[in-house]
Structure formats: structure tokens, C-alpha cells
């Protein structure tokens, strides 16, 4: 009796804690949606949601599996362009286009992942960078299908039965519901056997292999999963703005996603949320600096990395704990 009890407690105590977070999160989202009536703020929050899904998807790959990708915007773009092409050129319902977009992203990720994920460290980063650039050039040059550099106009807004997502509030709910779903999927995955295997790859791929983890398959699976989430974000972005152009999915966008993850904190799901919020809001605040904007942005980026290389979430917690220790001693 006695030895079982504590185990039960930890297992039982762990899941409800996550569940409490989720409930808290949902409540916060619902309340925000109810009380924020200005659709500008709702739009900013919606963009934060989309960016959070992106950051989260990359964090699975970078933070947990330790695989750097500098071409993540490609999957974001694939999601956006697939749904745009299917809904406009082929008159498909967006809700049917979504699985297609995700499927295509998964397919591409699978094809690219097999040779690319054999690489390590910088080489992997560079491989994904090259891939991202090529996808962007395809968006730009396949004019008949993608509208080329001028962009793709007239992507329909979303509707689900009587609910129209034309209204910003509904779209906000949709995006944040998608985000919550992504968080739950990622959290469950991280806390599962696969999650532990992933972290072992992060620490040492050789050691992971030695204990019988098929690192190659696992890496490809995470890569594919992260591509799927990025495509979801792309889908949400395309139907929100209703116009997409290659410039939104270029190398700088990939870098921005990486920055969100790193600043928020690698291997931290809530950190991705923080990083995405910060990087979405930062340019809005920096407008005040006008010509100095780039300088300030670059400086902030460098400073955070120099002072808090673990990202804001972990870095701040560390600082807090250190100060607490000092107080105690």
C-alpha cells in the first residue's frame, strides 16, 4: 500500500497540473475575447497566436530534438500557398484545404528531412537555409500558380456553418483554440516516451542510439510534426490577411521564428508563447524609434543572447532563484 501511494500521487498530480494550466489558459483567452472590443488589439493578439504556433512548432524541433532549422518559413509558406491555391484556383472549401496543406507540408518535410537530417550542427542549419531559399524562389517564380512576386490576392475568409470568421473576434478565438490544441499535443508528446527519447537525442545522439533509440526515424518524425504545425500557422495567416506574397516567407522570416524560440527559451512550451508575443509586439513598440528601429532591434537581440543565453523564461527564473538564494544565505 504504502509504496504505491506516492507514485500514484505524482502521476495523478502531474496531469491535473497541466489541465489546470489549460483551463486557466482557455479562461484567459475567453475573457480577453470578451473584454477586448477593439479589433486592432484583437488582430495583434491573433498575430501573436499565429506566431506562437510557429514558434512552438520550431521549438519541438530545436528545443527538444536539438535540430536547428533556418528554413522554417518554407513550411509556413507551403501551408499558406497551398490553401490559397486550392481555395482560389480550385474552389475548394478552406476546411478541406487545411488537411491538404498539412499533408503537403508533411510530404515535403519527409522528402527533405531524409537527407537533411543526416547533417548535424551548422551543416543542418545550412541545409535547411538552402531549402528555405529554394522554396521562396519557387513561390516567386511559379507565377501562374502562386501569383509570383506580386503576391496572391483574394483568399476567402473562413466560415463554419453559421459562424463567420470574418469578424476579428471569432478569428481570434479560432487561432487561440488552434494554439491551445497545438500546446496540448506538444505537451503530451514531450511528456511521453517519445519526448524523453527526443531529449536524449538533444543531449547526445550517439548515446541515444546506444540505448536503442532509432534517432533517424525520430528526428524525421519531429521534423514532419513541426512542418505540419507550421503549415497550420500558414493556413491561419493566409485566411486572416487574405493576401500572401513571397516576402512574408523569406529567410528573414525563418530567422525571426528562430529568434522567437531562442528568446523565449528553448525546450520551453510557454517560452515559445512569450518569445512570439515579444517579437510580434517589439516592432510595434519600436516604431517610435523610426530610423533607429533596426539598431535598437539588433541591440536587443544581441543583448538578450549575451545576458540570457537560455532565453527569457529560463534566464529570468534563474535570476529570480539566484536572488532568492542570496536572500536566504
Amino acid at each position: 500500500m504504502k509504496p504505491i501511494k506516492p507514485i500514484k500521487k505524482t502521476v495523478a498530480g502531474r496531469f491535473p497540473r497541466d489541465k489546470i494550466y489549460y483551463i486557466f489558459f482557455s479562461l484567459a483567452v475567453i475573457l480577453t475575447g470578451l473584454f477586448v472590443s477593439n479589433s486592432y488589439y484583437l488582430q495583434v493578439l491573433t498575430f501573436i497566436g499565429i506566431n506562437s504556433i510557429l514558434a512552438l512548432s520550431l521549438n519541438m524541433l530545436m528545443g527538444y530534438a536539438g535540430q536547428v532549422s533556418l528554413g522554417h518559413a518554407a513550411f509556413y509558406g507551403i501551408g499558406a500557398y497551398t490553401t490559397a491555391i486550392l481555395t482560389v484556383h480550385y474552389n475548394l472549401s478552406p476546411w478541406l484545404a487545411l488537411p491538404c496543406a498539412i499533408f503537403i507540408a508533411i510530404f515535403v518535410a519527409f522528402l527533405v528531412g531524409i537527407p537533411t537530417l543526416k547533417l548535424t550542427g551548422f551543416y543542418l542549419g545550412m541545409g535547411t537555409l538552402g531549402f528555405g531559399m529554394i522554396v521562396n524562389i519557387i513561390f516567386r517564380e511559379w507565377t501562374d500558380l502562386t501569383g509570383g512576386a506580386s503576391g496572391f490576392v483574394g483568399i476567402p475568409s473562413l466560415e463554419l456553418g453559421p459562424v463567420s470568421f470574418y469578424s476579428m473576434r471569432n478569428y481570434f478565438y479560432l487561432v487561440w483554440a488552434a494554439l491551445l490544441l497545438s500546446i496540448i499535443v506538444c505537451k503530451r508528446l514531450v511528456n511521453s516516451r517519445i519526448g524523453r527519447a527526443l531529449r536524449s537525442i538533444h543531449d547526445s545522439a550517439h548515446a541515444a542510439e546506444a540505448v536503442g533509440i532509432n534517432t533517424r526515424n525520430l528526428k524525421i518524425q519531429v521534423f514532419v510534426l513541426s512542418a505540419a504545425f507550421a503549415a497550420l500557422a500558414g493556413f491561419l495567416y493566409a485566411h486572416l490577411v487574405s493576401f500572401i506574397s513571397p516576402g512574408s516567407f523569406d529567410f528573414m522570416m525563418s530567422v525571426r521564428i528562430v529568434t522567437m524560440v531562442v528568446i523565449g527559451g528553448m525546450a520551453s512550451i510557454w517560452g515559445s508563447l512569450l518569445g512570439a508575443s515579444l517579437l510580434t509586439l517589439l516592432p510595434e513598440w519600436l516604431h517610435a524609434f523610426s530610423d533607429f528601429e533596426m539598431v535598437v532591434y539588433g541591440l536587443i537581440l544581441m543583448l538578450i543572447m549575451i545576458v540570457l543565453p537560455q532565453g527569457l523564461t529560463k534566464g529570468l527564473i534563474d535570476i529570480y532563484e539566484r536572488s532568492k538564494k542570496k536572500d536566504n544565505s
Binding site: 536547428v68 531562442v262 539588433g298 541591440l299 537581440l301 544581441m302 543572447m305 549575451i306
Partner: peptide
């Protein structure tokens, strides 16, 4: 920017150099 980094991880250094590139571009623009 480089020597002051506490934890010279690959990815941290990449972000720092990316930050530096934005910073330098901004300075050059000014």
C-alpha cells in the same frame, strides 16, 4: 558581442551574429 557570451552555444552565436547584422545595417542606414 562574441567574447562576452556566457554560453557559446552554436545557436546562441548564430542569433548574436544575426542581431549584429541587423544592428550594423541599421547603423549603416543612419
Amino acid at each position: 558581442a562574441i567574447r562576452t557570451v556566457k554560453k557559446p552555444d552554436h545557436i546562441v552565436l548564430v542569433i548574436i551574429t544575426v542581431g549584429a547584422s541587423i544592428f550594423l545595417r541599421g547603423i549603416a542606414m543612419l
